[in-house]
Design a binder for these strands. Structure first.
Length: 649
RNA sequence: GCCGGCGUAGCUCAAUCGGCAGAGCGACGCAUUCGUAAUGCGUAGGUUAGCGGUUCAAUUCCGCUCGCCGGCUCCA
């Protein structure tokens, strides 16, 4: 009896019924068989020793494919768990998946692992790899599995099993190590070539802070040592562009012990801030927003009415004034709403777009604070759009376009969008949530943009589209967000007078573009590795005189450059050699260095050096001024080499 | 908030087993007048995060507090 096997290239071959996937691979090429680690049968990932009993579409998986690498990492997690069980027999197993860039396994151990323990565990893993234990696989009915894992004291596995619906469960084993696992896995432990354990961390069982804290070991694995080395090197490079490190080195901002989570912006950081703010103001004016400012402290009664008191109190700071309780605002919306409500609004005035660079304070858990990325007070580039129900779609799409323009066109940032739906701790009936969620979904569909659903992560008053940006290590941070809200208008009894002369209920959008200015600057620092485009650079050019004799000329050049255009030019007056001053300007990542000496003074020029392009030759002061002005005005990410001259060969 | 690690000069880091707290960079001063990534010499700079304990003696060992780092949870 034969089975017909279809391969990815479309070819169909006959094999004996029960042939293993490995044998199929061998028949195709010995090389493929050697590289093979798993197989996809009719779209389902399986082990290589799977017997093929029916006609099927079959794809051999190697470590070269992303799916193969994931299997390799998952197997590495099992090997690590085996090593841990050998060294710490009392350890209880929780879960151990492959993740982006690696894997982890959670253990319940009486004493937590120290970083030194990782070395011992790695050694044990190498031993297991040398033993080349085969991964074997079988199915068991659930009740038997529960009994067996319970007998071994694996209470976490028992809990996982109890939550499963299937009658049969899948079990894997290598050596003496047995685990509940869907698979597939490598054929044997010897196939793991390059791995490293990275760090230990606490992690709640099932991500629930009321459940026990487990010990999680993170590691990574690659097909080749070369790839692993490359990855580790990338991590080191990423650490060098960490905004916390660059913020200190470039003197942009700091966090002081006296104000955990409350950042200080230094003069240079403030220049970047102002450049962003100017850009923000200009773009909002252009799009029909009106800027407002609402107070930081408002009465507790307002926050009761808005629902914050019931849904957000944990994150708020309170204070007392003349025996009355006030809250320090964690959001800007109630303030905006008060302004809307100050007078009768007509349908002719809608959509009404109020924007506000609002300073908000939130009590974030101390363990979550992270440089500028997560702080306890921050400036949201907030806006609240009050509109007719018929304007919802257009307004949402307008904001989506706005965000895309800022992220992609201006800063060249890649982003991901998530649609966050009704959370547990929400106000209002399901029907309204459904309508709002559907409106956001439709806007994304209309724009043809991909998005992910993030179940239960909406704001308490409405669903939202979240725009995520990545930091240097690939951790994502929510920046932009668009929230559609039917609840606040209701709670604050907002109305507008319609065409029919009757009062109607408006709908609200809450939205931010940057998100928080602090966080966005953190993202930008990492994105540009501190080498900001000229329009954002705290110092755009530094004049470097060759010697003290040329200080007067240098000063004149500085005056000429700074005369009208708000260019940020400084002068290195130090009595040092040129090489020394250039080195310092490079380390400060200043876009342009202007070297001036005898030649330049005689000709009325500057010798231009760019931080990345090097020596660009000399230009008249006026030509340089124009080129830099143009670069700043156009907010370019890179210099215009036609205007500045070509790098020297 | 939870688990673990860490905290020495402005910055980066040393200091053997518990035995006088040090270097480089930076800052300042003097000399040097220099052409595209570090000129030389000198000076100042410390409650070793804070508080308490053990000890003849604590940067070192112990406890508590604060802060930072990596995660978890949470969020812009």
């Amino acid at each position: 009896m034969a089975v017909k096997i279809t391969l990815p290239d479309g070819s169909i071959k006959d094999y004996e019924r029960g042939v293993s996937a490995l044998e199929v691979a061998e028949s195709i090429s010995p090389r493929l068989a050697k590289a093979a680690i798993a197989v996809r049968v009719e779209g389902v990932m399986q082990d290589l020793d799977t017997e093929i009993k029916e006609d099927s579409l079959l794809q051999i998986i190697t470590v070269e494919q992303p799916e193969g690498l994931e299997i390799l990492r998952h197997s590495a997690a099992h090997i690590m768990a085996e090593a841990v069980k050998r060294l710490y027999p009392e350890a209880k197993l929780a879960i151990g998946p492959a993740i982006e860039n690696g894997f982890y396994y959670d253990f319940d151990v009486p004493d937590s692992f120290s970083p030194e323990d990782l070395g011992r565990i790695e050694d044990e893993m190498r031993r297991i790899i040398r033993e080349d234990q085969a991964f074997s696989h079988w199915e068991l009915d659930k009740e038997t599995a529960i009994r067996e894992f319970a007998a071994k004291g694996e209470e976490y596995k028992v809990e996982l099993l109890q939550d499963m619906d299937d009658e049969k469960v899948s079990i894997y084993r290598q050596g003496d190590f047995i685990d509940l696992c869907r698979g597939p896995h490598l054929p044997s432990t010897g196939r793991l070539k390059a791995f490293k354990l990275l760090n230990v961390a606490g992690a709640y069982w099932r991500g629930d802070s009321s459940r026990p804290m487990l010990q999680r070991i993170y590691g990574t694995a690659f097909a080749r040592q070369k790839d692993l080395d490359q990855y580790l090197q990338r991590l080191e490079e990423a650490a060098r562009r960490d905004h916390r490190r660059l913020g200190k080195e470039l003197d942009l901002f700091s966090l002081q012990d006296e104000g955990p989570g409350f950042p200080f912006l230094h003069p240079k950081g403030m220049v970047i801030w102002r450049a962003l703010e100017d850009f923000w103001r200009q773009e909002h004016r252009r799009r029909g927003y009106q800027e407002i400012k609402t107070p930081i402290i408002l009465s507790e009664s307002l926050w009761r009415q808005s629902g914050h008191w019931d849904h957000y109190r944990e994150n708020m700071y309170f204070t007392e004034i003349d025996n009355n309780t006030y809250a320090i605002k964690p959001m800007n919306c109630p303030g905006s709403v008060l302004l809307y409500r100050r007078r009768l609004q007509s349908y002719r005035d809608l959509p009404l777009r109020y924007c506000e660079l609002g300073l908000v304070h939130r009590h974030e858990l101390s363990g979550t604070l992270h440089g500028l990325m997560r702080v306890r007070c921050f400036h949201q580039d907030d806006a609240h759009i009050f509109m007719l129900p018929s304007q919802i779609q257009e307004e949402i799409e307008g904001v989506i376009e706005f965000i895309d323009y800022v992220y992609r066109d201006i800063f060249g940032l890649n982003y991901r969008v998530e649609l966050s739906t009704k959370p547990e701790n929400a106000m209002g009936p399901d029907e309204i949530w459904d309508v709002a969620t559907e409106a956001l979904r439709q806007a994304m569909e209309a724009k043809g943009m991909p998005y992910k659903i993030n179940e239960g992560d909406g704001a308490f008053y409405g669903p939202k589209l979240d725009f995520h940006l990545e930091d240097c290590l690939g951790r994502t941070w929510q920046c932009g967000t668009i929230q559609l809200d039917f609840m606040f208008p209701e709670r604050f009894d907002l109305t507008y007078v319609g065409e029919d002369g009757n009062e109607h209920r408006p709908v609200m959008i809450h939205r931010v573009i940057f998100g928080a200015l602090e966080r966005f600057i953190g993202i930008l620092i990492e994105e540009f590795a501190g080498a900001f485009p000229a329009w954002l650079a705290p110092i755009q050019a530094r004049i470097i005189p060759v010697g003290d004799r040329f200080l007067d000329y240098a000063k004149g050049v500085q005056n000429q450059l700074m005369a009208d255009d708000h260019l940020r030019i400084d002068l290195d007056r130090r009595d040092e050699k040129v090489g020394y001053k250039i080195r310092h300007a490079q380390l400060e990542k200043i876009p342009y260095m202007l070297i001036v000496g005898e030649k330049e003074e005689a000709a009325g020029t500057v010798s231009v050096r760019h931080r990345q392009l090097g020596d660009l030759g000399s230009l008249s002061v006026e030509a340089f001024r124009e080129a830099l002005c143009q670069e700043v005005k156009s907010m370019s990410l890179a210099p215009d080499q036609d205007k500045l001259g070509k790098p020297m060969p």
